[in-house]
Every structure is written in structure tokens, then in C-alpha cells.
Amino acid sequence: MTAREHEHEHGSHLAEVDLRVRALESLLVEKGLVDPAALDVLIDTYEHKVGPRNGARVVARAWSDPAYRARLLDDATGAIAELGYGGRQGEHMMAVENTPEVHNVVVCTLCSCYPWPVLGLPPAWYKSAPYRSRVVIDPRGVLAEFGLVLPEETEVRVWDSTAELRYLVVPQRPPGTESWSEAELAQLVTRDSMIGVTRALSPADLHAGSEAT
């Protein structure tokens, strides 16, 4: 098969998928089983409202407030709810804290379990076969692909999420941020750092990023 034929076949396959989804939606709406307006609200919520900025607020609070940090590590679901986040796919949360001795990274080998209320929907790579298969047997190799090379003496813990329990990594607070406010700190906390595949940004990274944009 030529590349063009292959592309065409892929395209017509997706056209059938698109058609099937539209068929299901029109039938379910017709039968009164779903409300199209409710579908639009769900899409808007997860496309625009829920995302890693929520988790960044949680981490920045934990960095700034030792009592909050203690509550987060003891009962993450409750501590996250204090900031107003919870619900679907975040009913039971556990926070795992990175230190110079221990680095945590999260996966869902079986599917795509992910803490929606604090991180939004997962990126495609998190749901992909390469990440799910390999991070549990070669975490250092995978982290290196993300640009994170850990010292040999740092222990790596890989947490395999389940439908019942979801994890939030609390990355290490970058040096040079001692006087920063919570809102400033939150800018350093990226989605990937809360999955555990990178560190939080440094003040220099943030500066470079804002110059680039």
C-alpha cells in the first residue's frame, strides 16, 4: 500500500468513527437519554475550565503553608477539596511528595486513570502504549526522554493509578523562590511536574519562557 493509499484508508476509517459517534448521539438524544445542552456543558468544562492550574494552586499552597502541606500528605482528597476541587475522577486522591531522596512518577498501565479535578484530562502521551508499558520497567529511561536525569542515589517510585485512587505529585520547590507569593509559585508548577515526569520550572525557566512568548 502506498503512503497515500494508507492515508486515505486512515481518513475513511476516521470518517466512519465520526459517523458512528454522530449516530449514537442523535439516537440517544431522540430517545431522551441525553440532553445535547448537557453534553456541551461537559465539553466546555473539561476543555476550558478544569486543568492543571488547579493542581498548581494546590502545590503552591503546600509549598507556602506547612500546615496545609501536612494535611495534603495526610488526606489529599480533603485538602484538595479545601481549595474547591473534587468530584469525578478525583474522588480518592493521594499526594506523593518529591524530595532529594525520592522521586515519584505516576502512570495508569491499564488505561488512563488520572486526577481530573486537579490536572484536567490527560495528554495523549500519558494514555499511549509507550508510556504505559515502559515507565514501570524503565522509569529512568522514560524520565530522561522528558529531559529529567535523576542522580543514581535518588530512589524512583512509580505509582500505578486505579479507578479508585489517583495520585498528585508534589514536585520539589525550586531554589531561589523563598520570597515568592503563592500565586507566583503556582506559575512554576507545570502539569508534567505534577505527573512526575519533569521537575517544577525554575525562576530562570519561567523568565526564559515569558521572553519566548
Binding site: 491499564l110 502521551w125 502504549a129 509507550p130 504505559r132 508499558s133 515502559r134
Partner: peptide
């Protein structure tokens, strides 16, 4: 679906500015 520990899927591919 039980992918943990399987070999042969290649490197993790990431998409820059990935849409939801």
C-alpha cells in the same frame, strides 16, 4: 490493555501545545 512491562512500543511521543 494490560500494557505494564511490555516491550516494543518505542519512545514516548509528545505533542507540543496539544489540544484537549
Amino acid at each position: 490493555h494490560d500494557l505494564g512491562g511490555m516491550h516494543g512500543f518505542g519512545p514516548v511521543e509528545r505533542e507540543r501545545d496539544e489540544p484537549v
